[in-house]
Amino acid sequence: MKIAFTAKGTKWDSMMDPRFGRTKFILIYDEEKDELTTFDNRSIEGEAHGAGPKTAQKLFELNPDILITGNGPGGNAATVLEKTGMEIYIGAGETTIKEAFQAYKKDGLKKF
């Protein structure tokens, strides 16, 4: 399974970014390889509008099975993510990446 997180930093103990469209980083954890990779999304700060779909497009390319985030994507981004078929879990906006992952494993997150 490949799991994506919206994050403010690039490490397991970095904080989650509760925002979807304007998240600073996207982290992907590949469970089989036990590998955490980082994608810088900070260029999105330069965009006045349409941040949601743009980040969703990036996620589409990264193609994880699961997305864990805080507030949940907005309407436009949600439409894009729907096409990808990935499962989305929300409510992990104020924790570290590690805690968010553990919460997900214990079924402690809400499905979007």
Binding site: R19, R22, E45, G46, E47, A48, H49, A51
Partner: peptide, 10 residues
């Protein structure tokens, strides 16, 4: 100038 999500986010 239009207020935007970008300025608020900043």
């Amino acid at each position: 100038a239009d207020n935007s999500g970008k300025l608020v986010a900043k």
